[in-house]
Nucleic acid binder design. Sequence first.
RNA 1: GGGUCGGUGCCCGAGUGGUUAAUGGGGGCGGACUGUAAAUCCGCUGGCUCUGCCUACGUUGGUUCAAAUCCAACCCGGCCCA
Length: 426
Amino acid sequence: MADLFPAPRPLSQAGPGEASSSEALASRLVEAGRQGRPLRVKLGIDPTGSDIHLGHSILFRKLRAFQDAGHTAVLIIGDFTARIGDPTGKSATRVQLTAEVVAANARTYLAQLGQGQPKELSLLDFETPGRLEVRRNSEWLAGLDLPQTIELLGISTVGQMLAKEDFANRYGSGTPISLHEFLYPLLQGYDSVAIAADLELGGTDQKFNVAMGRDLQRHFGQRPQFGMLLPILPGLDGVLKMSKSLGNTVGLQEDPLSMYSKLEKVPDGVVAEYLTLLTDLDLASLPENPRERQRAMALEITRQRHGAGAALAAQADAASLVGGAQGAGAAAAEVPVASLADVNFPAKAFYLLSAVGICASSSEARRQIQGGGVKLDGDKLADPNQEFATAAELDGKVLQLGKKTFRRLVAAAPAVPGAPLQGAQP
RNA sequence: GGGUCGGUGCCCGAGUGGUUAAUGGGGGCGGACUGUAAAUCCGCUGGCUCUGCCUACGUUGGUUCAAAUCCAACCCGGCCCA
């Protein structure tokens, strides 16, 4: 049982309501075992974006551990709450999403978690009967009427809401807070009531929300859930938390090369955290050299998602990409093709770059050429006004921007129009 | 509803009548360098087949030879009062 909780952060002094402690959790586990009743472990996720990233996977790994121990994971797709937006960690009101967008996101989430795959390969166990319930909170939230909503609102106070750090900061700094944002903690707390949760998993930033769930359960005559708050994964920058909106994420569904090369360059300071939170590797058994540690970490995490073969291939590709940047080597076949069909000749160099889509605008192209960042078949282009008379003289040549961006020019229309580059921006 | 302050480029934030797409920071892109696509240093950062021409400082009008800068109305937000 100890293995289940390598780093539990039990809810303590959680504002309103009593605290839960790890002893109390342990006793409830024992009690559940005696009764032969699995615990209902809640994890809520709002389908606000289309990607699940490594930061989320800490929670899912823990949820999976509960499944493997015989408990019931209750995964709540916050299709209703997503439309409000969790104010946690936000400095501004979220844009409200439409029902269609939320529904589409929800579908991709389940696929990313491994729905339909054997449990050995998936993040959650979708196979074993009784180990997983997937619920959408619109089931019970969409039908709330005004009297019920008012009852919910009566359970908390403005003071309690403003005690929440994010609200306090925004209120203090004069950033607007819409009233509906106060509803978010209450609604997601009501989820705990609706599914009769014994335990809720969340990041440490979810303390307020988890505590709110306890209050609501008590109000509705249920035994309050325990909160297990797990560490927040730092993002690729090594400072801020991993978050889609900060652009410092690694998505679970990213291709092996992209995943490996992002992980390989995280700051040394967070490598140990990644190893601890995302892998089962033993820190002591790893090499001392920080560079090798990074590589081992990147390899292992890539392996978890894509298998050992793909991970090793990604490692090799990453090395060759950095090393021989000429494109003539290993990655030559992967260079995206750009058609010259829509380019009007004669074409000046800066116009060519924008017409082919390698630069966002012709002005940017001009600057890049002047900055010395553009090469044609390995030769640096010096003059943005250099003119090319016909498509034929460019056919088959490779245009390069910086170290990472390549386009093979083709006179005829290509079969695949400009696929995004490896390492391109999200 | 009243009073008051404010809305500037991807983001934050200077600028309060006049050479110039508009200080600075962040982010991004490029260059050099390196154990890494890290760190550091340097350059660039509105658009246009561009030696010039467009479009820009919440919106729409107005004053002026000239406005992001002055005036009016409107929209949006903060604070105080109700």
